[in-house]
Design a protein around this nucleic acid. Sequence first.
DNA 1: CCGATTTTGTTGTGAAAACAACACTTTTTA
DNA 2: TAAAAAGTGTTGTTTTCACAACAAAATCGG
Lengths: 225, 225
Amino acid sequence: MEHFTELKATKIFSFSSEFECQAMMFCFKTRFKTFDKNQKIVSQGEPMNDVALILKGSANVENIDSLGNISIVMRLKKGDVYGVESAYARDDVYKDSLIATEKTLVMFMDSHRLITPCENRCKRHDLVVKNLMRMMAESNIRLLDKLTHMAKKNIRDKVLSYLYSISQKQQSTYFEIPFNVTELANYLSVDRSALSNELSKLKKEGLIDYEKKQYHLIKKDKYDE
Amino acid sequence: MEHFTELKATKIFSFSSEFECQAMMFCFKTRFKTFDKNQKIVSQGEPMNDVALILKGSANVENIDSLGNISIVMRLKKGDVYGVESAYARDDVYKDSLIATEKTLVMFMDSHRLITPCENRCKRHDLVVKNLMRMMAESNIRLLDKLTHMAKKNIRDKVLSYLYSISQKQQSTYFEIPFNVTELANYLSVDRSALSNELSKLKKEGLIDYEKKQYHLIKKDKYDE
DNA sequence: CCGATTTTGTTGTGAAAACAACACTTTTTA
DNA sequence: TAAAAAGTGTTGTTTTCACAACAAAATCGG
């Protein structure tokens, strides 16, 4: 079966045998597609019919407002899904664009089929729903986390709060972040040059060290617990 | 049965008969409690054992960071729940405090019982899970919505984005918001006096009108679609 | 109903961030 | 592998915001 290895590696389908996967793929009317870096996987404002599951690579969830400001909502990695909450809320269009940040393999699933109790009763559909639930819970937590960074009143606290949370997640003061400086600025909704400036200062002051996407939190200061 | 009317009015239990409710209440080890205005319903950092369901009244989800800054994460109304995503993520402590904003009746449900498939197989447990799922999807969307407001680079755009989204939701340019100015400032993470000032300007310029919590969007300008 | 507390609008000041411009470096790609 | 494109660090200028202070208005609680 096509891409079974990747599918098996995701949280959603981890439990499934190849046979079960095949049944569900039929049930969810899945399609596969590979995208190059910077290609649009889904487009903000277009009719929403599918939920996207990242099988290989990664992608940014990006939102552009009416003034053209780009905001990176979050970064999706292998195994993450986009569009589940919209499917449940019965949105008719995509609220964001999904942009591949490298060569990325995506599986699309019919959103209606996914959230509707299966008449065929493909055996593990319930379990899929349960896994989706856990993923939605995690997404919720990620968003709450992001909100705590964005709630800080200056760039320094925003970025330190962000770095601190990554450090905690990775259980180390040495860690890699998924963004370059420009992207991080969009993620935190601050000016790129101002962020670059602040990072320089933090480095000069010996609070952090970094090189490309590799960071080291030296003094955690007030963010200690 | 105690509080059946209120329970029946919530999304989670809307389908249930009094008998079924009673069975589930046993299953979820529910407890009821009434809180006065400004009383803490759950406390940030304390052990998390229960999911809270608002049956009457309303409450703020508030987060205090290590520097003492208060941030209002969201406002919960009748029928809303707090803690589902934490329950699924198996958090051991509450990440926020829940503060009653008026006299509020809360039902607590054992979080472990809630997310664990029921051995007793109380008939509608699956349906409850499905409803929780929809609520989590909605919560997700609310958070995404809030992020778009917070992503704006100045107060004016933040508050206009917020007001515009409420207006859309209520399908009218006349609407009521759940926050007073001080609370709205905490919700949007901006200085209260700066927000008050900006609102005054917007009123002077004829873009909006307001009185207490009643607002009127006059010109939607660039936020039009 | 009245005194106490909280909320609000306003103003001024200093700090911080957005914006713009530019040279330099890194990465992409043809 | 060289040219083009994208990302980065730095600086100066302008705008915006946080902060502090205070009087007035509204709300609360006994």
